[in-house]
Design a protein around this nucleic acid. Structure first.
Length: 604
DNA sequence: AGGAGTAGCGCG
DNA sequence: AAAGCGCGCTACTCCT
């Protein structure tokens, strides 16, 4: 193992370039400000873990004057960080080259950079970042390790990093892009940590909830009692002894035979109908959904040792929101949230950003009136108090319409009043929509840009301008243009809200790790230990507060009960900090509802 | 038999 | 056409 000297880097910290080789070793370089490597060392994974641990712990309690934590520059957090976590090691900061590449490649703010102008390379292939596909990923590392095409001695990874730094520097107001990349990378750390730690999940309680709703568990393939009874009622009401209510086709026909004028079997359509089959049918739909999406099979495949470990995918949505893969973590129905229960002696702090997207819109547009409507209170209530609409529900429907692009119905009718009261905010959403209709790109607060429409879209627009274009062609082109306009309209708000949420979480994470443990410096008795160690958790998350869940505008922290209050404060302060990071001094409040509870169902 | 597409519904 | 954004997942359905 070679020695690795610490070079100088941004903010007094140091960049450390980490490359995984196909042989399983890790190449480590320290980099200077320009992204140039100084010395390289080849480490085994075990040596690497020790190296990381040493560098992190020497800076963890950094008082002023101590060096800041290194920023680990690596290709893919999702791939390398779990290795460290499994060894009980956390890092403070990283730069995720894969995620940052995507942002920089697409952003309108870095369009003229070398990185954006380069022909698609290995950093652009779709397979990169897909952890379940081990095969295609090896090619990237092979490429990287051997790539020295220009004879500069610079690895592909180092070159990519340098290009990224250059691209950032080329952006107007580059601080924002720098913040976005830091937030995106911090999100990747959070995602890996949350997956590793898992969401506390009591399968016994889950089983109880299921049994209460569906009846006792039965063999796979059979219907639980309550579902079976409902199917019998439905069949007898419709006079069809073999009807499968899960088949929309069969069901529509059976309903039509019963004299009901329906073309779909959607629940909200059925609700409008008057017929004795409707009640059991709606109930069946609700319960069978619970059974198939989050029933016993789900429980056994996704909950391990009392923890739900979903696979979060940062940047998995075009707008910058996260996606998840497997387990449907972002769709946990309220019905079963009662199974999310803090460990003995621990609490869940559940926090939710209230009316996040309208507040984001107000700040984006620098719309002072709208910001004031949300100052210190419910934004929708504030809109009502300003006399713009009569009820909170109207305010909400109108706002959603403005952000989603509603044109008809109640939402469409209320919009003009909103536009009169908040011209700046509405002008921003309209401008974003018009840009999309023209096929242009729109960009979030920190610099994530929308994709350009595909070839079919452009073909349809071109066709509408041909002399031979029919009315149908024109209608089709206009409809597609409006669809894309609604997408870009929403992109700006949803994407900026996602950036706020990333900053929020990054702040929460940073402050949580800085939180002193209550028993620091004292000898911990076995008894005290039993109340602070989470039995189901894994080091380094078994004794300290940590994030366990994230849902677009909501977080859950699992914490020893004694620290719950401190955690709640951190979360509130982090929201304020995130607002300042994105919008400086613009006086928009980001209100939270925070609840300290034993189980998730108690929040809200 | 297995893959792609659709319907429907859960979440924000 | 729920009136309008973004997702993931399951079961059914159609196609090869």
């Amino acid at each position: 193992m070679g020695t690795v000297r610490i070079g100088s880097g941004q903010n007094g910290g140091v960049y450390v370039l980490v490359r995984q080789t196909s042989g399983g070793d890790v190449l480590v370089d320290t980099l200077d400000d320009a992204g140039l490597p100084s010395e390289a060392a080849r480490l085994t994974l075990t040596e690497f873990a020790v190296f990381v641990s040493t560098l992190e712990s020497s800076t963890r309690e950094s008082a002023s004057g101590d060096p800041a934590a290194p920023r680990w520059v690596w290709e893919d957090t999702a791939r390398i960080y779990p290795v460290l976590l499994a060894a009980g090691i956390r890092v403070q900061r990283c730069h995720d080259l894969r995620l940052c590449h995507m942002i920089l490649k697409n952003s309108a703010l870095t369009m003229t950079s070398e990185l954006a102008l380069a022909a698609p390379g290995p950093w652009d292939v779709a397979s990169v970042g897909m952890p379940d596909q081990a095969e295609p990923r090896a090619t990237l590392f092979d490429f990287d390790v051997h790539a020295d095409a220009d004879g500069s001695g610079e690895s592909g990874t180092a070159r990519e990093f340098r290009r990224q730094l250059d691209a950032v520097a080329s952006a107007p107001d580059s601080g924002r892009m720098r913040l976005l990349l830091a937030a995106e990378s911090a999100g990747a750390l959070v995602a890996a940590e949350m997956r590793y730690a898992g969401l506390p999940w009591r399968t016994d309680v889950h089983d109880l909830l299921l049994t209460r709703e569906l009846g006792p568990r039965v063999a796979p393939g059979l219907r639980p009692e309550r579902l079976e009874l409902l199917v019998r009622r439905i069949r007898s009401e419709l006079g069809d002894a073999t009807l499968n209510p899960d088949s929309p086709q069969e069901l529509v026909k059976a309903l039509q035979r019963a004299g009901l004028a329906v073309s779909t079997t959607r629940a909200w359509e059925l609700k409008k109908l008057e017929h004795p089959v409707i009640e059991p049918l709606l109930q069946y739909k609700k319960l069978s959904r619970l059974q198939s999406a989050n029933g016993w099979i789900w429980m056994e495949s996704w909950v391990i040792d009392g923890r739900f470990h979903p696979d979060y995918v940062p940047g998995g949505v075009v707008t910058g929101r996260w996606a998840t893969r497997g387990g449907g973590a972002l769709q946990l129905p309220k019905q079963i949230r009662g199974a999310v229960i803090a460990d003995e002696g621990w609490k869940l702090v559940v926090a939710d950003a209230a009316q996040l997207e309208p507040r984001i819109l107000a700040a984006l547009a620098q719309d002072m009136s709208m910001a004031l409507a949300g100052r210190g209170s419910d934004l929708y209530a504030g809109i009502v108090a300003s006399g713009v609409v009569e009820t909170r529900d109207h305010a909400k429907v109108a706002m959603l319409g403005a952000m989603y692009g509603a044109t008809t119905g109640e939402s469409g009718r209320l919009m003009p009043r909103l536009a009169r009261a908040y011209p700046r905010a509405i002008a921003l959403t309209e401008a974003a929509a018009r840009a999309g209709e023209r096929g242009e790109v729109v960009t979030t607060r920190l610099g994530r840009s929308s994709p350009i429409p595909g070839p079919d879209w452009h073909a349809a627009q071109d066709l509408a301008y041909e002399l031979a274009a029919t009315a149908t062609d024109e209608r089709r082109a206009r409809s597609l243009a409006r669809d894309w306009g609604r997408f870009t309209r929403n992109f700006v708000v949803q994407g900026s809200a996602a950036e706020w949420a990333l900053c929020w979480m990054a702040e929460i994470r940073r402050e949580l790790t800085a939180l002193p443990s209550p028993d620091a410096g004292t000898e911990r008795s076995d008894e005290a230990q039993s109340t602070t160690l989470a039995p189901g958790a894994r080091a380094p998350f078994d004794a300290a507060p940590h994030l366990v869940f994230f849902l677009h505008d909501e977080v859950i922290v699992h914490t020893p009960a004694a620290q719950a209050e401190a955690v709640a404060n951190i979360i509130v302060n982090a929201a304020e900090a995130a607002g300042r990071l994105l919008f400086g001094d613009f006086p928009v409040d980001f209100m939270l509802t925070v609840a300290t509870v034993d189980n998730y169902a108690q929040a809200k």
